[in-house]
């Protein structure tokens, strides 16, 4: 019944949906940031990040595909005993868009280099979707640098056939993300990426629409295309057992992207259980009615799960 009510409200308000195409473009540095942006050079790139500061253990938040640090807006200040740092991966947000491979291994090394640049010997590494796959990759290569992993709807648990991988790589050309109209963007955000739309999601839609005609977004389009190819080409599924780092895995029951509805189908819970049980030290929390951006759809439940998990696995 709540779903029907939501649908009826959506129908009634369809004509009232705001549009942003008529507004002037915004540049990366103008993106909303719950904590002011800073920039630091990493491996020759300008990397943007948000840092709450403080003396507590560090949680390093890594966003997913085609998103940026502000997707963690409901986490950045939710853990006062910790220092939260959210990074804009290269290719995204307010960071540089270099001509780079954008593979999971490459991203993982960027994350470690960023930690080096900030003097962070070890952190709790949190990742969403592709950021989760990056976190798993980083933990495989540098296990000593991570006290724990917090994964929100992580990619990397699924398998794809050679044909699926080729199809996705062919489909996601370097200009495809630039072709999305505002109506496509809204549909993508409201139906695939998020299950609960609020003012935060609305702002993210506006930013995405207003960035699409900038040179910076053309670079993001390259990053998206290469990242997708890299995600399906570099799965961590077969190496999950090697990760001994304590890992919290959180999925929404209404995740519309994992498992991939076109190529794999099935229930999110199934793939979540598979991936978590394959980890040497994994714990799974399923959040009812939350979608792919589970930490945004139901931030209270997600944050509570993180708090409990970190209490059980205190950083060194």
């Amino acid at each position: 019944m709540p779903r029907l009510m939501t649908a009826l409200i959506a129908l009634g308000s369809a004509a009232c949906v705001p549009t942003y195409s008529h507004l002037p473009p915004i540049q990366p540095a103008e993106l909303y940031a719950p904590v002011p942006y800073q920039w630091t050079p990493v491996d020759g790139m300008n990397i943007a990040f948000q840092d709450t500061g403080g003396d507590g253990p560090v949680i390093l938040w890594v966003h997913g595909l085609s998103s940026y640090a502000s997707f963690w807006e409901y986490q950045m200040t939710a853990f006062p005993e910790y220092r939260s740092i959210a990074i804009d991966l290269p290719g995204y947000g307010a960071s540089d868009r270099p001509d780079a491979p954008y593979t999971m291994d490459w991203f993982a090394e960027v994350v470690v280099s960023f930690m080096d640049s900030q003097g962070l010997d070890h952190v709790i590494l949190a990742g969403h979707s592709m950021g989760g796959q990056i976190a798993l990759t980083a933990a495989l290569e540098h296990p000593e640098r991570f006290d724990a992993l917090v994964l929100s709807a992580p990619a990397g648990f699924e398998s794809f056939s050679r044909g699926h991988r080729d199809w996705m790589s062919d489909y996601w050309t370097e200009t495809r993300a630039m072709d999305a109209t505002e109506s496509h963007i809204r549909a993508n955000f409201s139906q695939l990426t998020f299950a609960v739309t609020d003012d935060g999601v609305e702002r993210l839609i506006e930013e995405r629409v207003r960035m699409r005609d900038t040179d910076a977004f053309a670079g993001t389009s390259v990053a998206v295309a290469r990242s997708i190819g890299a995600m399906v080409d570099g799965p961590v599924r077969d190496r999950l057992g090697e990760i001994e780092t304590p890992t919290l895995v959180v999925f929404g029951t209404h995740d519309a992207l994992i498992p991939n509805p076109v190529f794999n189908g099935g229930r999110t819970r199934s793939i979540a259980k598979y991936g978590t049980s394959a980890l040497a030290n994994g714990e799974l929390v399923m959040v009812k009615r939350a979608g792919h951006t589970v930490h945004h759809d139901d931030a209270d439940t997600f944050n509570a799960a993180v708090t409990t998990f970190l209490a059980e696995h205190p950083p060194q």
């Binding site: 307010a94 003097g119 040179d215 910076a216 389009s221």
Partner: peptide, 29 residues
């Protein structure tokens, strides 16, 4: 080494936005 690198990097940090460098997409094949 990490601390030395961090010290060097901290000197490069800025709160002012740098000019964003962006790769140009290849035309679709």
């Amino acid at each position: 080494l990490i601390l030395l690198l961090a010290g060097w990097a901290a000197a490069q940090e800025t709160a002012a936005p740098p000019e964003i460098r962006a790769v140009v997409p290849e035309p679709s094949p």
